[in-house]
Design a protein around this nucleic acid. Structure first.
Length: 204
DNA sequence: ATGAGGATTCCA
DNA sequence: GGAATCCTCATC
């Protein structure tokens, strides 16, 4: 019998955001806005490790209206606008006052592909449908007004199923687009499902 | 009040 | 390689 189980608060509340980012590979991200379900398997994530991580919006304790949700409880969302047009969907982890977050960078779409096509304005299904963080949010209908939402809700959550993967199926690399972060730009905080065609390409 | 820049994407 | 596009945040 196929299992499909929503992840609970104790998955998100843990201290090691890098481990959680790794464990999110293979899980299923589900949105059910207005009763319309879309979902996909997570194949690429990036950990942002809070106040000591130069690449994080919370680096050095930076705390603003936009990033406030990262300082809240784990198991919530942080969604922000990038370049004025792309919604970036993040999972907030750890406890209150520890601003850890994980950017979901790519999915392998499973349910609701026709809806994803409508939302993204694409005319045909290809690997770019849910490749890259901007496309992930667009395909699942996630916008900045969904920031601070609980991932224990029925509208937006992450689930595990029977999907099996071995440790060697997951590869760690440096994060994308964080060259401004000095030495922290080289940290192996990006995780991908090896050889999955939906994974975005590492820039050189 | 102002302006620089961004955890990106798409097209030429 | 370059534009799109606009909010956020540090600084003035």
């Amino acid at each position: 019998m196929q299992t499909f189980e929503k992840l609970r608060i104790d998955f998100y509340n843990r201290e090691d955001v890098v481990l959680i980012a790794k464990e999110l590979i293979g899980k299923i991200l589900v949105s059910r806005f207005d009763g319309i379900e879309t979902n996909g398997r997570i194949v690429e994530t990036e950990a942002y490790a809070g106040v000591n991580d130069r690449a994080s919006h919370a680096w050095n304790g930076r705390r603003t209206a936009r990033t406030e949700t990262m300082y809240g409880e784990g198991g919530t969302t942080y969604v922000y606008l990038c370049y004025g047009l792309h919604q970036m969907f993040n999972v907030v982890t750890n406890q209150k006052d520890t601003p850890h977050a994980i950017l979901i960078r790519a999915l392998e779409p499973i349910i609701g592909i026709d809806v994803m096509l409508q939302r993204t304005g694409k005319s045909k299904v290809d690997y770019t449908l849910t490749r890259g963080p901007g496309n992930v949010a667009k395909a699942l209908g996630i916008f900045t007004h969904h920031s601070t939402l609980s991932l224990l809700s029925d509208e937006l959550f992450i689930a595990k199923d029977d999907f099996q993967l071995s440790p060697s199926d997951i590869e760690a690399t440096k994060r994308i687009g964080v060259d401004y972060a000095g030495n922290d730009a080289h940290l192996p905080y990006r995780f991908i499902l090896r050889n999955n065609p939906y994974v975005s390409r590492q820039k050189k």
